[in-house]
Nucleic acid binder design. Structure first.
Lengths: 214, 214
DNA sequence: CTAAGATATGAAGGATCCTTCAGTTTTGGA
DNA sequence: TCCAAAACTGAAGGATCCTTCATATCTTAG
């Protein structure tokens, strides 16, 4: 919806000395901290630099503009999630419905919870500029991985595995997101951890054509 | 996470002549249009006023600041959704599990789709400042309505209706949100409309203690 | 040790943007 | 018709904020 993601969104230069790598890391974590403390609306180049213990100019040596910084942060986080999920899919191939369902739900929760702070911060960026492309790519990767996984489940057949995978991804992603984005007390997270696998399995059983095992 | 919602977020004055009511309406729709066209980051008091065919000063006669405007927009939209859902709950009281499940899913989808444009725009605001309180209140209203509805379902018993209602609300809200927020082709929306009721029913059957009817 | 390249600094230019308010126009009742 | 209240206008003050670049400091190969 927002401004089209600029093409030149990539880092300006790659670090060659070790200290610059440290600087970049500092900038990244500072960005997330500012994001959490003040929100996207108050995220300022100066503020981030200050928190990173770095001057503003330094930031601009690695990112052509603010957007590029935010973009990089989101991309990294998304990569973490996708990688975790692809790993889970590989591990689950050929297992029965219950195992696959639980495995996916747990993997998703773990991936998000592992860096709950980052995740929560990231959600705030989404609206600021066009992440639809990034998100879409990540979603497609997941659907394309889950679909064959569903086909390989021995004790269930799905009429339209692509459709089911799509819905499953939406269900996992969305449910976790709203709970985390809301007040998300420790209590709510626990409720989520308890119920998400059920929801997951419930839907899959519903989508399966002939539940050979109940 | 973001700045705490100011107390003085309410409209500055209430319209007394009919033309001011029209002005307010124009401002509201203009806000949504700008939101969709340019995103929150580019939403400007001037831009909104321009689009509404009104001067900036006029806006400030009704809202003390930009935030108040956004706040009002979100509040209105949230009210629409909640009202729709409460209506659905009332209609569904005492019906069987399948009916209740389908009814809730459909009601939610309809409420969102009815003003898909607004909804999509609203999602963009969430990150800008603290809507957690608003959202949380809406969520609680829904959970408090759904919970007794579940208790009244004749053909299923739930161990913890509150928990199930909580999860159901998260599932509905989250799943629809991510699909709408993504590219959300007409195609994806159709898939969602088809699969959401299944997911809903699947989860509820899973959460029910003794499924008297399969 | 030294020079060249890499990295860091931060004041300041330029661009918005939010908000105000003194003054104008419109409305509706007396 | 007339006027007081309501509504509207929009230029301009004041506050950020993003980004640049001339300069300074650090690192490492030779």
């Amino acid at each position: 919806m927002n401004r089209p993601a600029p093409d030149l969104l990539k880092p300006r230069k790659t670090p060659q000395q070790s200290r610059s790598a440290a600087t970049i890391e500092a900038i990244h974590t500072a960005t997330i901290q500012v994001l959490l403390a003040d929100g996207v609306g108050r995220l300022t180049t100066t503020r981030v630099a200050e928190r990173a213990g770095v001057s503003v100019g330094t930031m601009y040596q690695y990112y052509p503009h603010k957007q590029a910084l935010l973009f990089a942060i989101v991309e990294r986080q998304l990569d973490l999630i996708v990688t975790a999920m692809l790993g889970a899919v590989e591990r689950l191939e050929g297992h029965d419905l219950q195992t696959v369902s639980d495995g996916l739900a747990t993997a998703w929760l773990d991936a998000k919870m592992a860096d709950l702070v980052s995740s929560r911060a990231i959600y705030g960026i989404a609206a600021e500029f066009d992440l639809a492309e990034l998100m879409s790519r990540a979603k497609n990767l997941m659907v394309e991985a889950i679909s064959p996984l569903l086909r390989a489940v021995p004790d269930a057949r799905f009429a339209d595995p692509d459709l089911t995978a799509f819905m499953l991804a939406a269900l996992l992603g969305g449910t976790v997101r709203v709970v985390m984005e809301a007040g998300s007390s420790e209590d709510d997270l626990e409720r989520l951890r308890q119920e998400l696998p059920r929801a997951c399995l419930g839907y899959l059983k519903m989508a399966a054509l002939q539940p050979t095992s109940l």
